[in-house]
Structure formats: structure tokens, C-alpha cells
Design a protein around this nucleic acid. Structure first.
Lengths: 102, 102
DNA sequence: CAAACTTGCTACAGAAATTGTAGTAACGGA
DNA sequence: TCCGTTACTACAATTTCTGTAGCAAGTTTG
């Protein structure tokens, strides 16, 4: 069931997804989890945002089944989360090109 | 020259990009421009955000050379912007799969 | 020519989100 | 018992965003 979230009135999956990813720190958190699981505090240190908002975003990402908490290792991407990340990986290379252009 | 923006302390292109795209409505605006140019008010109506923030985001996207204002047709993606969009297009299909999973 | 419309955009007060700091509660090991 | 680690919460200050109204310049219409 698709949840209607902030700013997404239609409930269309792409809109819900864009809304979720368009919240501050969400993309960054997914990015930080791209290689290995991270502890809450590691994420906090790496990202530099307040624990309040990191926890809020993690809760949203967990509810969206993109991230899960593996007690033994820390937060990590679910299979879905990894799929999403894979779509984003080309951004890395492209961002270098973009940086040169601006 | 890469500008150090909110939340991006390193200045690494990927971080700057993730920060830019991770602001509310930014992804959504790029998405709305995917097919054809849009007027300011069209964007406003389609997105449902305040003109203040739409204008702020458009200014950021223009500075990032992802969007430009074509006086005759409206706001549209630059070549760079189109490249970025192309990376995001797979999200559309994937979001449908994701929606079924959650 | 004047009124009406369209254009991008700004002002501003109230509401909501985010920060920064401190601290809680549960658990494990020494 | 004390210390460290864990995820997480409280809360006031600050920043961002909203919602509504309107401006200024140009175009269209009567």
C-alpha cells in the first residue's frame, strides 16, 4: 500500500518516491550506506546532521523498506534499497563532469 | 567552480549534487520539466508548492546550469539537466515495483 | 488607447522542519 | 559496579517553507 506522504497528493509511486528522496539528508543517508553497514553514530558523524533528523529519516527509509537495522552490523540497505542505489551510482561519475561544467 | 552549499562541507561534486537534489521540491521540479518547457505558474500548479520556494529552487537549478529560462517557451532543462534526467528516468519504472513491495 | 491578461517574481506573517546540545535507557564486558 | 557502546529522545533556538497577496513589465483584447 502506497502511503501518501508530505507533498505527494496523487499517491503515484514516482511522486511518493521523489517526495521521500527529496527530503533533506535522505539521499545522503542512502549514499553513505552504499558500501557497508553503518552505525547510527557513524552516520551522524559522516553526515553531520542532528540525531533527531537522522533518526526521522532512518525511520522513513525503514518504513519504505529501503533500509533496515541489522543489530549486529548497523544500518544497511535492503535488497530494494540496493536496487535503488544501483540506479543512483551513475550520479557519481556524472557529478564530476557536471562539476567541471559549472 | 564548485560552490559549497548547505550541508556539503567537502565540496566533493557528488556531495554537492546530493545536497542540491536533496532539497525539497528540487527533484520534483526537474521531473516536471522532463517532457517540455513549463511556465513558472504551470510549475507552481503542477507541484503545489509556494512560489517563494519554487523560485528559490529554480534559481539554484539555474545557477547549477541544470535549468534555464527560455523566455519564449518557459523553464526547461539544459543539456546538462537532460543528462541528469536521463539518469533518473529508470526511477519511474522502478518506483512501480517498489510501490508493490511496500 | 485603455482595460484585462500573462509573465516572472517578491513580501511577509504564521507554520513547520531542522539544528545543536543534552540526556535516557538497555546492553556487554572488565 | 563502573565504563563504554548502542539506538534514540527532549526541547528550545534557528532556519526553512507555506499561503496569500500583490508588483512590475510586457502582450492581448475590446
Amino acid at each position: 500500500m502506497v502511503k501518501r506522504v508530505r507533498g505527494s497528493r496523487t499517491g503515484r509511486p514516482i511522486m511518493v518516491l521523489l517526495d521521500l528522496l527529496g527530503r533533506r539528508w535522505t539521499l545522503r543517508i542512502v549514499w553513505e550506506l552504499r558500501e557497508e553497514p553503518r552505525r547510527f553514530r557513524e552516520l551522524q558523524d559522516a553526515i553531520g546532521a542532528s540525531p533527531t533528523i537522522i533518526n526521522t529519516r532512518l525511520a522513513e527509509l525503514r518504513e519504505a523498506k529501503l533500509v533496515l537495522l541489522d543489530e549486529a552490523a548497523g544500518y544497511r540497505l535492503t535488497t530494494l534499497g540496493e536496487e535503488l542505489l544501483r540506479l543512483f551510482l551513475p550520479l557519481h561519475v556524472w557529478s564530476e563532469k557536471w562539476a567541471k561544467a559549472i
